[in-house]
Each structure stands twice: as C-alpha cells, then as structure tokens.
Amino acid sequence: MNFLDIAKSRYSVRNYTNQPVEDEKLQKILTAAHVAPTAANLQPVHIIAVQEADGLSRISKAANIYHAPLALIVCTDKTKAWERPFDGMRTTDIDASILTDHMMMEAADLGLGSVWICYFKPDVLKKEFQLPEHLEPVNILAVGYADGVPASPDRHSSTRIPLEELVSYERL
C-alpha cells in the first residue's frame, strides 16, 4: 500500500480484540519512532511500551485506552529539546507528535488499529510509572487489532474541510 492509501484507511480505533500485538510488529512500530526526525536531531523523547496487565491497569487510572493490548506512552525530556531562539518556543510536543504519527502510520501499515490519546491525567501517569521530573508524558498511542467495522477510506471528502479551505498559495 502506498502512503496515501495507508493514511486514508487509518482511523481512530476504540474497540480492540484481545489478541496481543506480536513482538515483531511492536519492534517495527518502535523502529518507525526511532527513525522519526526531531528538531536539531536532539531526540528529546522516550517511549514506554506497556503490554502487561499490571501496566495496562496502571495506565487505566490515568486514561481510557479502550482495552487495547498495547499502549505506547510518549514522553519528552524537557532538558534536551531544541528551543527556537527568536521566541523561546520549545519543540518537545512537536517532536513527540512526529514520533507518534510515525508509529501510528506503521501500525496501520501492519494491519493494526490505534488511537492517539491526549485526554489523560499526567500527574497520575507520572506517579504510576515513576517518571523522573525531566520526563513529561505528552500522549499515549493505544494499539491493537480493531474489533468492528473499519471506517471507510473515502470518508475524508465528507469529514474534512475542503482542500481549497485548508491551503492557500502565496498569501492568505
């Protein structure tokens, strides 16, 4: 499948089967994160892969992961991120998002479903996973085998703003 086909077929999965994600697939997903670009290649990120019942239970105290058999907690290291010198903007969330997107698309290419979760209690996640002060959880990617009818890859023409509204050329 080419990239646009993968992107069009991917959707947010909120129902998963009990089938675990095979280690080979998990390694490919993590490799997709590993090759993802970060600002100035500083790589201010850390991923916690959670698949065991105890870890999934601890995540559920902070977020709804929809009973996915795998959750990837994407954290940023506040001490390593690049900072834009003109206004001090730090790229931590951007870098974490790039990694998450790479993992999400690789999961889709492997026939797995996922949902990107930002609605979680960071303080609970920090406590449950004993994160050091310099690591900040940015998002969670729940991953597994989708249970249910997949969304239509043709849905974007009715669920997205028109391309002409999204993009302008040379001026607003």
Rank of each mutant, 00 (worst) to 15 (best):
M1I: 07
N2V: 05
D5T: 14
K8H: 14
S9K: 08
V13M: 06
N15P: 03
Q19A: 13
Q19M: 13
V21S: 05
E22Y: 02
E24L: 11
K25L: 15
Q27K: 15
Q27H: 12
Q27F: 06
A40Q: 10
Q43K: 10
P44D: 07
H46S: 14
I47A: 08
A53Y: 00
D54G: 09
R58M: 08
I59W: 01
Y66F: 15
A68V: 11
A68N: 03
A71D: 02
A71G: 15
L72M: 02
L72R: 00
I73H: 01
V74Y: 03
V74W: 01
K78N: 14
W82G: 15
G88P: 02
T91M: 10
D93H: 05
I94A: 14
A96W: 00
D101R: 04
H102F: 09
M104D: 09
A107C: 06
G111P: 10
L112W: 00
G113T: 08
V115L: 09
I117M: 08
I117P: 10
Y119C: 12
L125C: 09
K127Y: 12
E136L: 09
V138I: 07
V138N: 04
N139F: 02
A142W: 00
G144K: 00
A146C: 06
A146S: 09
G148R: 00
P150E: 02
S157I: 05
T159F: 02
I161N: 14
P162A: 13
P162C: 06
E165R: 01
L166S: 13
L166V: 06
L166W: 09
L166N: 07
L166Q: 13
Y169I: 15
Y169H: 06
R171S: 15
